[in-house]
Design a protein around this nucleic acid. Structure first.
Lengths: 125, 125
DNA sequence: GCAGTAGATTGACATCCGTCGATATAGCCC
DNA sequence: GGGCTATATCGACGGATGTCAATCTACTGC
């Protein structure tokens, strides 16, 4: 935790407090996953576990400029603007998307390496 | 689909019916993700979006024999046997775990390459 | 067959989550 | 300032999801 809570947002993609890993010195075969680690990692997958959020990611990723504003995202999905905003918030809180407000518009872009980090979680299970 | 439905189980990790991809011949920049594709891919992440299921995977993966029986899984988690059975079923239906019954016991093992396939979904978003 | 055991299934319940309409906030332009 | 637009937040509602106790199924061994 520590500094990652300053923004009032807990970012699941940040590495866990090393203290929980203090059961080190084990050959590496057994630690399994503590309840806390599991809950933390599950947050990222929860963010990915919705069809509409996957589509949002797909659209943002496919955008040549690397970013999309909300107005470009409400169209393709059959969802209202508040719902899209809600999904985007979840993706931002999961550390997958980055939000930048310029003037009246909000632009969303993929956090570099975020999806790779998720893949890393899988291989490190 | 085809043979994968013989068991009465739809395996989300199998590639989608190519028909949905028939909007080919697009340079490759735009297809985004159709609603059907998104729903299909979300199933796998739904299966991973629970702390206890992540712990189950972690335990099975860490087992030297490559498989665990249910009795080895109910202990570490603070869950009743029916609940563990329920979670295991979800992981099997997602194509991540394989179930083999030998005698009275049921052994669960990772489907080879399943987690890599999930990583592939991410990079192909 | 009978008792015992491992595991799956069912049904109920509480909680979580996706969605919407309504409203609030914030920036632009006249 | 006042109207306008883009986006976020709130409150409510219905459906999905995790959990458990109780029950069922299938195998083992006597």
């Amino acid at each position: 935790m520590s500094i990652y809570c300053i923004m009032g947002v807990m970012n699941p993609l940040q590495t866990l407090d090393p203290a929980v890993d203090a059961s080190c010195c084990v050959p590496s075969a057994k630690p399994a996953l503590s309840a806390e680690e599991a809950q933390q990692k599950a947050l990222v997958f929860k963010a990915l576990a919705d069809p509409n959020r996957l589509r949002l990611l797909s659209i943002v990723k496919g955008e040549e400029a690397g970013e999309s504003c909300v107005c470009d995202l409400t169209g393709p999905l059959d969802l209202g603007q508040p719902t899209v905003s809600h999904h985007l918030k979840i993706l931002v809180e999961a550390g997958i998307l980055h939000r930048e407000k310029r003037g009246t518009w909000a632009y969303y872009s993929l956090v570099p390496g975020a999806l790779d980090d998720v893949a890393g979680i899988l291989s490190a299970l």
